[in-house]
Design a protein around this nucleic acid. Sequence first.
DNA 1: GTGAAAGCGCTAACAG
DNA 2: CTGTTAGCGCTTTCAC
Lengths: 348, 348
Amino acid sequence: VSIATVSRALNGADEVGEETRQRIVQLAAELDYAPSAAARTLVTRRSHVFGVALGNDAGGPPGLQHPFFQDVLVGLQDEAGAQGFDLLLFARDRTASSSAPTLLNRCRHHGVDGVVLIALDLSGPEIDTAPLPGIPCVAIDEDVQSAQTAQISSDNIGGAALATRHLHELGHRRIAMITGPERTKAGRERLAGYRQELERVGVPLRPEYVQHGHFFSEGGAEAMSALLGLSEPPTGVFASSDLMAAGALQRALELGARVPEDVSIIGFDDLQLTSLTQPTLSTVRQDKHGIGAAAARALSNMLKHPDAEPPVITLPVSLVRRESTGQPPASRPRPRQQRRSSTRERET
Amino acid sequence: VSIATVSRALNGADEVGEETRQRIVQLAAELDYAPSAAARTLVTRRSHVFGVALGNDAGGPPGLQHPFFQDVLVGLQDEAGAQGFDLLLFARDRTASSSAPTLLNRCRHHGVDGVVLIALDLSGPEIDTAPLPGIPCVAIDEDVQSAQTAQISSDNIGGAALATRHLHELGHRRIAMITGPERTKAGRERLAGYRQELERVGVPLRPEYVQHGHFFSEGGAEAMSALLGLSEPPTGVFASSDLMAAGALQRALELGARVPEDVSIIGFDDLQLTSLTQPTLSTVRQDKHGIGAAAARALSNMLKHPDAEPPVITLPVSLVRRESTGQPPASRPRPRQQRRSSTRERET
DNA sequence: GTGAAAGCGCTAACAG
DNA sequence: CTGTTAGCGCTTTCAC
């Protein structure tokens, strides 16, 4: 029972006697021996760990706090586990401190086999050396210029177009959008999809119909106040996230507008929340779990085939129709409910 | 510039020349040198990583999928980061496979400096050797028998009593509870708090008023159906989680009951969701971020003072009154709305 | 104050 | 098929 043989037996090398292996494996189990990952990493240069950089600071784009990424993380966890990797969650952005180590350095420091970039502000100093040379990297919902980085995201443009078309097909012509931050890929693309679809169906874009939020519910509520305060308020509102849609819904009701009778609302993401609001929220479903799983799979493949092109994956989305969307109010220009609401809004 | 000196300089040892240090530090920055964590861990036996075991399998207690733990994780991430630790998220429970390595082994394998146990079924085989000898361990919302494990949880009993008292003080006497799984600490304790408070105020416990759910909204909805189907339905319902409360609310409205006029509903957790339902949900607030932060701090302290008793921390909770709770319907035994709802329920 | 040398626990070549 | 040897990149005595 020599030391090298043990290593071979436990790593399933084929050049080892069957009985010897049995003995070793069993003995290891009894002693519950745990090989040191550090030592193995040191020599093999493989850590079997994927780094996950998921922002969670208030200043940046929505990160771990946002329910959307929760499911992405579960997908990541599931698939990474299946591929034999654990996840190293880098603790908090230290973007603030300029002396903070760059993301690249933290990855090399820990010797991760791959990195998942989510919800980061890539313009920040943290990601100075993107792409991270030598470390397979996959970005979720980020625009990365480098061809060395795999990219995963939902079909944001198509989804936004889908939502807009849904409203248009219901008969809406005054269709507003509550968009996410410009600096996020999802924010930009969904806005683009909305614009594109309006153009396709020949409805002119009104600047006052584009309100900005930050993907959370408060932004949605404020945007809705602004929209209902317009002299010609929209009859349909597409929000770039379910949280914003829920906030908008809440505010609309507070202001006395009926949903969907006076104003239709549709979101994006398909969070659990969508079936818990009253009325339930129509939305565009993203395959959140699938996004995470795809990221893990992509990293795993990049490790196996270092020379292959990193994939750029766009996952399909689908329309989920619930109760918050319906036909626009009969073609009176300003239904009573909305007038009332806009008045109230001004008081606030 | 010798190799040992570099090590000393970068680790801030005091026995090094000031100018030498300066030179080294600057040079390291220029080359952006990243010391290998693996090598360092190998020799110092400190990894600066906390392991996080957060279940996410459908069979077990609610894990990473549940919104509650999202905020806990953020707290953990923030405070661990502040203390200089990153987080290793063990990928998926492998409880299924009996040959899977135990949690203890996975921790030793990775050489984590501490472990956070969350939402695990501690009766499972994975945690055979709890407590994990030699590894500081903190359990969140778990009942661990061992005195070697630190424990963090909210004041579940007090919180449940608070919710129950709130309903009682509003005038409710027919107070039901939608409880979580017995095998979770939160499930058991909140049920205990409810019982305790009923006893205190002298309202007898009715077995048919205790319905079981799994902390998610579906369970809440089904439980509400059952409750409204009773010949004498409750006028107040305390749900052991906000998700169940939201599901119950939804179902109550579907069945034609008005909330809070016909039936009051109060939850537990204080998720974002609570202010997005219609009506908004009264609840018992837990300091989710604080729980995570306390866990990280506890581990850090246990590392510094290995001989100190691991703390058992109970965080205070508070009542958040929103719109879903109010006075019970005037003392007619069976208000019309509820009769209608119970009828409908039977059809389903 | 700095360099030289040993060794953390493992894997990978190379002999036997 | 198995044992011996060297070395991964770092920290840490111990000399100088």
